[in-house]
Design a protein around this nucleic acid. Structure first.
Lengths: 217, 217
DNA sequence: GACGTTAGAGACACCGGGTGCCACCGGCAA
DNA sequence: TTGCCGGTGGCACCCGGTGTCTCTAACGTC
């Protein structure tokens, strides 16, 4: 059970992973978490492009093939359970009453789904810094955000009785998401800023139509 | 000089390219145009992922290595001279007088830089359909749009005397760009729609802060 | 007209992300 | 014991992208 190069063979994997799981729920989730953690550390230390899959696999104590089985792609290693994030957003919107106006409902759902516990903020900063800084990850983000946009556009369309492909639902989705990512950027650049505050400020500006910029400067 | 498999060797390239250029200006530009055209046709016919670089090179009558020398990457083959596009936008903003309010200035620059001649619209549709449909190209678009955002944010910051990294300049940049891409989407989905009209409509909604969505539905 | 120079092109080798396939090993049920 | 099954590792392969070398056609110079 030491870390010395014992020829333990492939059987060593399941054992250690088993120990790590137990409380979490499943071997899969445990190894995936190990891989993602190793990837995050290596990416922030050396940069996304400089780290190879073999590096991550080695750091996580597994193989290249297993990495792809769990994570799917190099970029996916940074995103964690984003699908669950989107699902929570969809749930919040579905649960929003029809008495609250559309725009505040979207704003509120965004703020609530991004209401992280203080303990999770450092990891979130690490993730977002990578996503917004590394070109390859920034590119990949567009594919993920498209899922968010579909959810929001669908909600607006339902409330308005419009086609989700119409201008207004799509516009609300892309504009609110643009505001959210911008809020993330300024939050990332200011160590003292609060994420919820940044989101609310950005949404406020958006909802007011940038009043200071429409008439004479 | 026929198209039969004469062992012409590497010398055949420069000759034909020479003929194609002359009126355009440079052998480089001609071969690049040939490559981009071949790529666009193959992508729309078979899908972005299905087409390999070798396919494009063969269709353009050149080699894989030459493809990369001219185009840079597979995704770049779709974008044409987007850098010039961004430069024109920057020029329009720089030339905008300080008497016109900030937001209308940005809107106007966007509309004007996207005022294509009728003859260019089919190719534009082809390009935008690919960019908005193919996931890999949608991802890549984020990197390109980041350049646009920098230009717009810089303009807003200059007009307002703020830091380009502050919330408002960034927010205006990302929100207007989101509106523009949304306008492109609906324009793409509606054969009869006008691009300028779609842009103006989207910008109008954005500037008004979605009035119908802020109070009771 | 022979010369060297230069830009463009092709061939080759290599790297890294991603996938399909097969073999193995452990646990579990019949 | 036997058979199944989830998880794993190894291997081969495809493809996008880059560095390097060589070749050749075109151009200016003497």
């Amino acid at each position: 059970m030491s870390t010395s190069p014992v020829p333990a063979g492939p059987g060593a994997g399941p054992d250690t992973a088993r120990i790590l799981s137990r409380a979490v729920g499943g071997v899969r989730a445990a190894t995936r978490a190990r891989i993602e953690q190793a990837a995050l550390e290596l990416f922030t230390a050396a940069g996304f492009e400089q780290v190879t899959i073999d590096d991550i696999a080695a750091a996580a104590g597994t193989s290249r093939r297993t990495f792809f089985r769990h994570v799917g792609s190099k970029a996916d290693a940074v995103w964690g359970d984003f699908a669950g994030h989107v699902a929570r957003l969809a749930g919040l919107l579905a649960a929003a009453g029809d008495d609250v106006p559309v725009l505040p409902a979207v704003f509120g759902a965004y703020v609530e789904v991004n209401d992280y516990a203080a303990a999770d903020l450092p990891v979130l900063r690490q993730r977002m810094r990578l996503i917004l800084t590394e070109p390859a990850l920034l590119a990949h983000s567009q594919v993920r955000y498209a899922d968010v946009d579909r959810v929001v556009a669908g909600y607006v369309a339902r409330r308005r009785g419009e086609d989700p492909a119409a201008l207004l639902p799509r516009l609300v989705a892309t504009a609110t998401r643009a505001a959210a990512t911008t809020a993330f950027e300024v939050w990332l650049g200011d160590e003292r800023a609060g994420l919820s505050d940044a989101l609310r400020t950005a949404f406020g500006q958006l909802a007011e139509g940038f009043p200071g910029l429409r008439s004479r400067a």
